[in-house]
Nucleic acid binder design. Structure first.
Lengths: 223, 223
DNA sequence: ACCTGAACACCGTTCAAGT
DNA sequence: ACCTGAACACCGTTCAAGT
């Protein structure tokens, strides 16, 4: 029973904001946003609950760090020689994919706006490209907002409901709608919601928005 | 000190699912989603906490009833003689306005999908109109989804962050971005986010989507 | 310096009991 | 029938103390 101070330190010492955030992201991927508590995360890390408060002021700051960790994991695609439209399309597809890979991020970012430098990177890149295309600041901001909302919203409604009870309640309600008041939904409701997700649907709507932006760009000179 | 059984009953007897849901909605409007607990709502109603569980299986079911109450409060606009495009535009503007009037609904519906008959009414009306316009079931579902996501997402990001601490943290982060890595945001960031909301912005994007849908409708005959 | 148990003020919900 | 206090298993966070 010889003590092993080195091994012990190896397990304890590397604790850092990044370490904790990475572990929290993994925990969220496995168990969902509702399951993450400071107590459980600490237990998962093998430390006391209060240790976390040595690294983060509160839970909100920790969640910001998680968003940041995810953004670092999937860095914003560099523009290279792409024209503005395919670039913005790729940017939004990347973000969409990232949100579907880490669905808990949707809830986090909806609850507390965007608040970390890494999270602003995609905004910077998108605005830059739109600005280069010849849009004014105001136009670029509006165009980016539309693309962002659609991408984010699409991911939000595409993510299957994590709460089993809610999902069942929704399906039951849909099935029980009175036929006379809901002719379309009772006849073809299932079909409607089957297609509610779907990547091709998202891309088509994205193209629609990009084309709309393109119409405004056209008169100014495409970059 | 004569007992007043009638007066006492007047204060107690009218308790019902609808009564409770209406009171919960008012509470949410005043204090926000995070502030609503079963305990506080019961106190607001002047009853014991457990009384609520005689009317709702759990908190989720109560929140569903709140969504329902709001939908009943602002019934879906009847179509009348409107053509499909102005009708859908009006439908989405109504929904947008409703969500801004009751911002807590955004969080509720994001957390637990759509699950009550009243909440399905707008879907039914929208699909009906798109179907009448000549779209197939699949096309109508896709078009409605795009409009719904945009309207919902727009309201979600337009609603100012209810959590003061988060809002301050976000603003501070934006102000502190390094100039070399974020040239656009540091130079014009404030301007970008000032315009982030704004009703006219929402309507313009809505028209963009409607025009996109219209392009598909055009070849089939407008109703 | 870094960590942490105990405690406080909350949750949603079950249970068993009140009228 | 309708209501409810006590209790259980949780939260986030403050505080004071440990090493």
């Amino acid at each position: 029973m010889v003590s092993q101070p080195v091994a012990a330190r190896v397990r304890k010492a590397p604790l850092s904001r990044d370490q904790i955030a990475a572990r929290a992201l993994a925990y969220l991927d496995r168990h969902g946003l509702d399951a993450l508590s400071m107590r459980r995360l600490a237990q998962d890390l093998g430390v006391g609950t209060m240790t976390l408060y040595g690294y983060f002021r509160d839970k909100g700051e920790l969640l910001d760090a998680v968003v940041d960790a995810a953004a670092t994991e999937h860095p914003v695609r560099p523009r290279g020689r792409m024209r503005w439209k395919p670039y913005l399309r790729a940017l939004m597809l990347d973000m969409h994919e990232g949100l579907l890979r880490h669905p808990a991020l949707i809830g986090i970012r909806l609850g507390s706006a965007i608040a970390t430098p890494s999270a602003f990177r995609i905004t910077e890149a998108g605005l830059q490209a739109l600005h280069d295309a010849g849009l004014t600041d105001r136009e670029a901001a509006r165009a980016f907002r539309a693309l962002f909302i659609h991408t984010f919203g699409s991911a939000a409604f595409q993510t299957p409901d994590s709460d089993e009870a809610d999902a069942r309640r929704g399906a039951a309600t849909l099935a029980a709608l009175p036929r006379d008041q809901f002719p379309v939904l009772t006849a073809r409701g299932a079909q409607v919601f089957d297609d509610w997700g779907g990547e091709s649907q998202f891309e088509r709507e994205l193209d629609l928005l990009l084309d709309g932006i393109g119409a405004r760009v056209a008169t100014k000179g495409d970059t």
